[in-house]
């Protein structure tokens, strides 16, 4: 079986064969650059595993004839599995199943939208409907765990709609303020087609 995984920031390709009695033989390489077929040298692994509990896996890795025990902890989340090994944390996503689902993952990449990074409470709204705003201008301030964050306009434009109010609880993905991109800005980003 082959897996295309993303482990934190690395893209990792795993070719794995299940062996008898909870064993695995795997070869792992990683993409050096995105969009190329250049891979690193393959690392070969001969492992044996035991499922200790719902969250704990013991893996024994054969290293030049010596068996090294690795205790790992696993937790499923909306973006993939978080795996803890010796105090280090890895978010592991299966790129293939995500592709099959038709999305980049459950959390859309939204740098152009006014949405909070974590669950938060709205503390200030700096604009009103109809306001013209410039890129970088303060739009709305939210607070989470005593830390205030200001979300700014991603581009020049006009405030179309405000979908929240002061003291309202909001979540990532929720669009708090809708801004219509100004024509000049649109021309800027899609300049070639207009020409």
């Amino acid at each position: 079986m082959e897996y295309e995984l993303k482990v934190n920031r690395d893209n990792i390709h795993v070719d794995v064969d299940a062996q008898e009695d909870r064993g695995l033989r795997a070869s792992i390489c990683r993409k050096i650059e995105e969009n190329t077929d250049k891979d690193t040298d393959k690392n070969l692994y001969d492992v044996h595993y035991d499922i200790i509990s719902d969250h704990r896996i013991l893996m024994t890795v054969d290293e030049n004839g010596h068996a090294r025990q690795v205790n790992a902890y696993v937790s499923d989340g909306p973006e993939g599995k978080t795996i803890a090994i010796n105090g280090r944390y890895y978010l592991v996503k299966d790129l293939e199943t995500q592709r099959q689902r038709g999305g980049k993952g459950s959390m859309p990449d939204t740098p152009d939208l006014i949405t909070p990074a974590t669950p938060a409470v709205v503390v200030k709204i700096h604009v009103k409907v109809g306001d013209c705003v410039e890129k970088g201008q303060k739009i709305i301030a939210v607070s989470a765990m005593k830390m205030e964050t200001t979300l700014c306009a991603p581009y020049d434009g006009k405030v179309l709609k405000i979908n929240t109010a002061i003291n309202e609880r909001v979540a990532p993905g929720q669009i708090l303020v809708e801004i219509e991109k100004s024509e000049a800005d649109q021309a800027d980003t899609s300049g070639k087609e207009i020409d």
Partner: peptide, 24 residues
């Protein structure tokens, strides 16, 4: 940024959890 020294091991654990963990 955290180093990625054990990224290979994390990938293997992911696969084990997918294959065996769920069934268990």
């Amino acid at each position: 940024k955290q180093n990625a020294d054990d990224a290979d091991l994390a990938a293997l654990i992911y696969i084990i959890d997918e294959m065996a963990g769920k069934k268990h």
